[in-house]
Design a protein around this nucleic acid. Structure first.
Length: 428
RNA sequence: GCGGUAGUGGCGAAGUGGUUAACGCACCGGAUUGUGGCUCCGGCACGCGUGGGUUCGAUUCCCACCUACCGCCCCA
């Protein structure tokens, strides 16, 4: 093979694209019910947009960014996630202005890039559908966002979902907790996995979701963030849980859940699926949270925000086996017998299309048998056959492919109103 | 970045250090001057991921690389 797609990328071919369209369309419709509007931001941004917001020491920034210097020596990076770019656009376009109604509810969908080893449900170019809402700190919005995410997944027919929620509290809570955690873990430092030893210095919270079994044992008895919340942060989290219950949304509190990005505070959540597609393991397909300092970080006024990102490839893995309501339909297949019918066939399909039908024809001058076979395979409702004699008589042979009944019709009638002919053959 | 498995026609899949690389599906043509199923016949790999090497000779042995898949890190 001379040319191959770059490592970790995928071609979405015609047999797949309808699924993508269905997913995107469904998301758009749902988001608009909640009054979210689409924003489209650049695929690449200045490196600092992500390094500032994701955390200088986060893995995403230190090893997973697709960055490069352009011809103007600008440090550019392909976006690894959607939030930072949307926040940048929010600030740059001054949507924080008083004349703009809050919350500003936005959604986006598109490719993201991370330089990592591809594996199941993880590509270097992958796609996310996400939402971001700015300007409101009300916990009701947190819950509405989670409810919307769940609704979306349910619309795709996903069952066996798990909503895990946690809070990172405010700055004060988080700092107090971080200290407590480090104090607890330091005596165990030598027992921790090599990865976690590193994390102890860089990002101790990450040790909480280590997959190393020994780490997990140590973490079991570690202090919980929930015990270090300030009264306000605590009250906020209680409200969140209460509102989830009011909406009858099942959830579990996972106080060990953390985020890969540094900008979150207060509410964070993940929606996981244990579908067969993931070998029965709980796998996160949607994750999000609140980020009240991000807008300020990117130069805007202090403005609260909350959002989530949904991994489209992972979602597709789950709905792969389901039959989606995607109907390919073909109304008429025009069978032309002999080269000299090609012109009339062209006029026929064009006329039918103009009349609103989905029409196709043969372009290879194949034998009738082959053409009918194709019509059958394409699930054509009707065929319209013309040969030399029909050409002379200015007629065509209309056939209902389901019943097999045939009828001679005039071309004039077809050009006039094909729907009428369909009715007549159906009635007989 | 680390570890493991794999790479033969459009797809699935045998195979061997040595003349013409099985078979199945799909596709195309014919039997049936113009009709969807079945059956029968025929066609369909400038060649076995790429590049080197060993050898009289390699798809088959060795090395490197590429890619895919699985796991780790991390994450959607």
């Amino acid at each position: 093979m001379k040319y191959q797609k770059p490592k970790g990328t995928a071609d979405i071919m015609p047999d797949q694209s309808s699924k993508w369209q269905y997913v995107e369309e469904t998301a758009r419709k749902l988001f608009e019910k909640y009054c979210y509007q689409e924003v489209r931001t650049p695929i690449f941004e200045k490196f600092e947009v992500f390094s500032r917001t994701s955390g200088e020491t986060s893995d995403i920034v230190t090893k997973e960014m697709y960055d490069f210097y352009d011809k103007g020596d600008r440090h550019i990076t392909l976006r690894p996630e959607g939030t930072a770019g949307v926040v940048r656009a929010f600030v740059e376009n001054k949507l924080y202005g008083p004349e703009i109604q809050k919350p500003v509810k936005t959604y986006y969908m598109g490719p993201m890039f991370r330089y990592e080893r591809p594996q199941s449900g993880r590509l270097r170019e992958f796609h996310q559908i996400g939402v971001e809402a700015f300007g409101v700190d009300n916990p009701a919005l947190d819950v509405e966002v989670m409810a919307m995410a769940i609704n979306l997944l349910k619309q795709f027919g996903l069952t066996s979902l798990k909503l895990a929620v946690n809070t990172l509290g405010d700055d004060e809570s988080r700092q107090a907790y971080r200290q407590a955690l480090v104090d607890y873990l330091t005596p165990f430092e030598n027992e921790l996995s090599d990865d976690s030893k590193e994390r102890l210095k860089k990002n101790p919270l990450r040790i909480l979701d280590s997959k190393d079994s020994n780490d997990q044992k140590i973490v079991e008895k570690a202090p919980s963030i929930l015990d270090y919340l300030t009264p306000q942060a605590h009250a906020r989290f209680e409200t969140i849980k209460e509102l989830l219950s009011v909406l009858d949304i099942d959830y579990v509190v996972d106080s060990n859940m953390v985020r890969g990005l540094d900008y979150y505070n207060h509410t964070i959540f993940e929606i996981m699926s244990a579908d067969d597609a993931f070998g029965g393991k709980w796998t996160t397909i949607c994750a999000g949270g609140r980020y009240n300092k991000l807008v300020k970080e990117l130069g805007g006024p202090e403005t609260p925000g909350i959002g989530f990102g949904l991994g489209v490839e992972r979602l597709l893995l789950v709905i792969e086996n389901q039959s989606l309501p995607i109907a390919k339909k073909l109304d008429v297949y025009v069978v032309g017998i002999g080269e000299q019918t090609s012109t009339e066939s062209l006029k026929l399909v064009q006329t039918l299309r103009n009349q609103g039908f989905v029409a196709e024809r043969d372009y290879l001058d194949r034998k009738p048998k082959g053409q009918f076979k194709t019509a059958s395979k394409l699930a054509a409702q009707y065929t319209l056959t013309i040969g030399e004699s029909e050409l002379v008589e200015k007629t065509a042979n209309l056939k209902n492919m389901q019943t097999g009944t045939e009828k001679k019709v005039t071309l004039a009638d077809v050009y006039q109103d094909f729907a009428l002919l369909i009715n007549s053959i159906t009635e007989e």
